[in-house]
């Protein structure tokens, strides 16, 4: 059982993808076309990108429920700034504002000692309120057509968002597995007290993590806004659930210390396949929400089971 669970940890998500592919391949002839596959992968990148940030947060033993609101805030700022100061500076400023929100999250969590869940849940309400206030509750169309390039155009036949994801993946991969900061994040997540005693600056590390989560959420906001060409203050409802589902389905353990970025990418693609399948049978939007909720509970179920067995094995003296 232990060996099976270890194996599942590594390749479970691939098995799910293979099963889903077989199912979709039988269900519809359209599935095996390059366009469809690229489309599914592109849809999958949106969640995966923010999943990278969430992997870091959960690895550090934290949590971020404010990502959906940050996406919306980015969207609103972009729609207001782009006509005034041009595309590049608008993107940079919107991302910086989001990073500042991540910074606030980090400060409240570390300096005030407020539970991460409560902090980011409150921050989500506040940020959503601010986005609605700035946009006055309305959607703001963007007329600068060049901006649409980021979300919709292709380079060498591959959509731009996929490139963005690959670049972010490399950065986050190097950061988590190849730098001291990455090891420190894992250390804080496995045992915060031990990390503090061995001289790590836990406050700094946690703040960086929350800034990075907000950064990835902001990138997601840029891509979405570029596709919609509208600033939407109510953008991305329920997106946080999707991101957390992707993270946990991808094999990042809730107990902290162990992050799995590769898993996040494939979990994002898997969810995107589920959505594609649900669209095929033309069910309402609510079923998408239900499916993500159920997948999350399934992933949690597996994660819980895995931890129980590993713990039992450890007590029996089996090396894990």
């Amino acid at each position: 059982m232990v060996r099976f669970l270890k194996l599942y940890e590594k390749i479970g998500i691939f098995i799910l993808i293979v099963l889903a592919s077989i199912f979709l391949g039988i269900a519809t002839p359209n599935f095996l076309k390059t366009d469809t596959i690229l489309n599914i992968i592109t849809q999958g990148t949106y969640g995966a990108i923010v999943g990278f940030g969430m992997v870091l947060a959960i690895t550090s033993g934290g949590f971020d429920l404010s990502v959906d609101a940050v996406v919306a805030l980015t969207s609103v700022f972009l729609s207001i700034l782009i006509p005034n100061i041009g595309i590049p500076s608008a993107i940079i400023i919107s991302i910086l504002i989001s990073c500042f929100i991540g910074f606030l999250n980090g400060v409240i969590i570390t300096k005030f000692g407020v539970n991460p869940l409560i902090t980011t849940l409150s921050m989500a309400t506040i940020v959503r309120g601010v986005a609605l206030l700035i946009a006055n509750g309305k959607q703001i169309p963007i007329s600068v057509t060049k901006f649409t390039v980021i979300g919709t155009s292709k380079f060498l036949g591959v959509p731009i968002p996929i490139y963005i994801m690959v670049v972010l993946f490399i950065i986050f991969y190097l950061l988590l597995y190849q730098t001291p900061l990455g090891r420190h994040i894992s250390a804080v997540g496995s045992n915060e007290n031990a990390a503090r005693i061995s001289g790590l600056n836990v406050v700094f590390i946690k703040i960086i993590v929350y800034v990075l989560v907000a950064f990835t959420a902001s990138i997601n906001g840029v891509i979405r806004t570029s596709q919609a060409m509208i600033g939407i203050p109510s953008m991305a409802p329920g997106f946080t659930l999707l991101v957390i589902t992707i993270t946990i389905l991808g094999g990042t353990s809730l107990s902290g210390g162990k992050g799995n970025l590769v898993g996040a990418v494939f979990a994002g693609i898997f969810i995107s396949m589920v959505y594609y399948g649900l669209n095929l049978i033309k069910v309402q939007y609510f079923y998408q929400l239900l499916s993500v909720g159920l997948i999350l509970i399934f992933a949690l179920f597996v994660d819980g089971l895995r931890q129980r067995y590993l713990e039992a094995a450890r007590i029996k003296g089996i090396k894990v």
């Binding site: 949590f63 429920l65 869940l117 329920g238 659930l241 957390i244 589902t245 946990i248 809730l254 309402q284 609510f286 079923y287 929400l289 239900l290 993500v292 909720g293 159920l294 999350l296 509970i297 949690l300 179920f301 994660d303 819980g304 089971l305 931890q307 129980r308």
Partner: peptide
């Protein structure tokens, strides 16, 4: 879910939040 599977309560109930709501819609 919280006790027998030892899943932290906030994340179990986060999943349930969406399951309950979508069931109400459906």
């Amino acid at each position: 879910f919280v006790t027998k599977l030892r899943i932290p309560a906030f994340i179990t109930t986060l999943g349930m939040l969406y399951v309950f709501r979508s069931l109400a819609y459906i």
